[in-house]
Nucleic acid binder design. Structure first.
Length: 307
DNA sequence: GGAATTTGACCCGC
DNA sequence: GCGGGTCAAATTCC
């Protein structure tokens, strides 16, 4: 993903470019749906969401709006969503004594059954799964396979995003201290952990997104191309350490862990089925696969942000 | 048979 | 007391 840390002119240019791309994609999507190409349309929708996400981020950078809320998780005003973010905050507070740095990634899979992109090349062992309050999907807990044999304390948590079944939040805690430490993916993680806000004073806790947007790893690119994964490198962002406090109320880091860089919930509305002015929250209540597979009639998308 | 996963129970911070 | 994180016994898989 491109960086947007440049001057205002550069940002505006980037925003215009992104919006033009969005328009182009929407029209292409319409065309493809007419051609009855659900797979292509689905892929396009993923790109569309990413592009709009970037656009919102750029727009927010103009006004300095806090990036609260999320694309991935339920928004505060979305029924159970509020408690969902509460749960994430609770996670931030918990185990704060450890001061363990962590890195958060969001991975988009090609389909609800496609788990391959979640494989980061490292060896993990699942040790638990937990229903999270307010979250539609359980959170899975993994630790390094060599935890006992080599005392490696690396862990990761994986949770499917409420708003987008194809999007996974992956949070890595701790660097590998085992034989896997030499693995490129482990080295990259360690580098990111080292430069996470909990370690690096500079960067303003999440305001250094640009730096991380440019840190698309070789592994990520490999996954992106070889495994059909849309690794949203633009969503790759550091997380505050457990002991990290938000510098100012409402600031970026105060929303830890940031479910989304943009703070916007994206809802795809099927115009023809919109009702009572609220429409149908397809992302929240329907599986994309079902949506595209079962679409029996031409429809148009209204893509809008629901802050 | 060993490794991995599942799942209920427990621990701990708030 | 609540809820997230972890443990460990039971179960499944290879």
């Amino acid at each position: 993903m491109d960086g947007y840390g440049g001057g205002g002119g550069t940002k505006k240019s980037a925003l215009a470019s992104e919006l033009v791309q969005v328009l182009s994609m929407v029209r292409e999507l319409e065309a493809r749906m007419d051609q009855d190409l659900p797979a292509a349309a689905r892929e396009l929708c993923g790109e569309l969401a990413n592009t709009v996400d970037r656009s919102i981020r750029i727009a927010r950078s103009y006004c300095g709006c806090p990036a609260g809320g999320t694309t991935a998780d339920s928004p505060p005003g979305h029924g159970d969503g509020g408690s969902g973010s509460d749960g994430n905050n609770a996670q931030a507070k918990r185990r704060k004594g450890t001061g363990t740095p962590c890195v958060r990634r969001q991975l988009r899979v090609a389909s609800v059954k496609d788990m391959a992109p979640l494989d980061d090349g490292l060896s993990w062992r699942k040790y638990g799964q937990k229903d999270i309050l307010g979250a539609k999907y359980p959170r899975a807990y993994f630790r390094c396979t060599h935890r006992h044999s080599q005392g490696c304390l690396a862990t990761k948590h994986v949770q499917r995003a409420d708003a987008d079944p194809l999007l996974y939040d992956v949070v890595y805690h701790g660097a590998h201290a085992c034989v896997q430490a030499a693995h490129p993916a482990a080295e990259e993680l360690r580098r990111e952990l080292t430069h996470s806000p909990g370690h690096a004073a500079a960067g303003g806790q999440g305001h250094d997104q640009d730096q991380h947007q440019q840190s698309s790893s070789p592994r990520a690119q490999e996954l992106d191309t070889a495994e059909g994964l849309q690794l949203q490198t633009g969503l790759l962002e550091p997380m505050a350490t457990y002991a990290f406090a938000a510098p100012t109320p409402g600031d970026f880091a105060g929303c830890f862990p940031l479910p989304s860089p943009t703070g916007v919930e994206w809802q795809m509305m099927r115009s023809s089925h919109t009702s009572a002015g609220n429409g149908m929250d397809l992302v929240g209540h329907h599986q994309f696969d079902d949506l595209f597979t079962n679409a029996a009639e031409p429809f148009h998308w209204d893509l809008y942000a629901a802050n």
